[in-house]
Simulated scan of single mutants.
Amino acid sequence: MLSQYLYISTAPTLGRDEVESILAASARNNPARGITGLLLFNGRNFLQLLEGEEGEVAALMETITADPRHAGVSVLDCRTIAERACPNWAMKRVMIAESIDSRRETLERDLPQGLDPEVRKMIVNFAVLN
């Protein structure tokens, strides 16, 4: 059974190099676990979408929650899905445009088409907050 989790967390002291390191580790480790998804980082907060077999995603969420590099992990959405929205993304970093005005447009273009409209709305709302 496939599951999809969407969570946010706070990491105000995380530098660009550390974010790149997290993405590299995800690209290395996620394919073997059958996990796909996307990651947004606005300089202070993460928003991450994870998809995969329920047991694998739940185990990864435990690891993420215990990771000292960020705090306040809060699951925004957790659902069973029939198919992945990000089947080819081991973990794609979705860039947030500098201009708040262009963020919505950029995300609408870059987010996968298969995302549930409700999940898409949460991701876009996160990105336009700053």
Rank of each mutant, 00 (worst) to 15 (best):
S21A: 15
T65Q: 12
E62T: 11
G72P: 00
L50G: 01
A82V: 09
Q48T: 00
S9F: 06
E62P: 00
E118D: 12
Q4D: 04
L50I: 02
N29A: 11
A24G: 12
W89D: 14
G43D: 01
D17Q: 14
A24F: 11
G43Y: 07
A97V: 00
R44I: 06
S9H: 08
G37Q: 03
I96R: 07
L2A: 10
S3I: 04
P117K: 09
Q4I: 03
V94Y: 09
L23R: 07
L38E: 00
N125D: 15
E18H: 10
V119L: 06
M91H: 12
L76C: 03
E53Y: 00
S21C: 04
T36H: 09
T106E: 12
S3T: 13
T10V: 08
V57R: 12
R104F: 04
E83G: 11
T80R: 14
N30Q: 09
H70N: 04
G114W: 02
G52E: 02
G114K: 14
A11R: 07
P12L: 07
A82L: 12
V119M: 04
A85K: 11
A32E: 13
T10W: 07
S3Q: 14
S9E: 11
I81A: 05
V19F: 10
F46W: 01
P68S: 14
V128G: 06
T106K: 14
P12F: 14
I96C: 06
E62N: 14
V124R: 03
G37W: 02
A97F: 06
N130C: 08
D110Q: 13
T65I: 00
N130L: 10
I8H: 11
N45Y: 07
P68I: 05
V75F: 10
I123R: 05
G37H: 04
R103V: 02
D17V: 09
R33A: 14
R104V: 03
A25N: 13
L6I: 10
L39I: 00
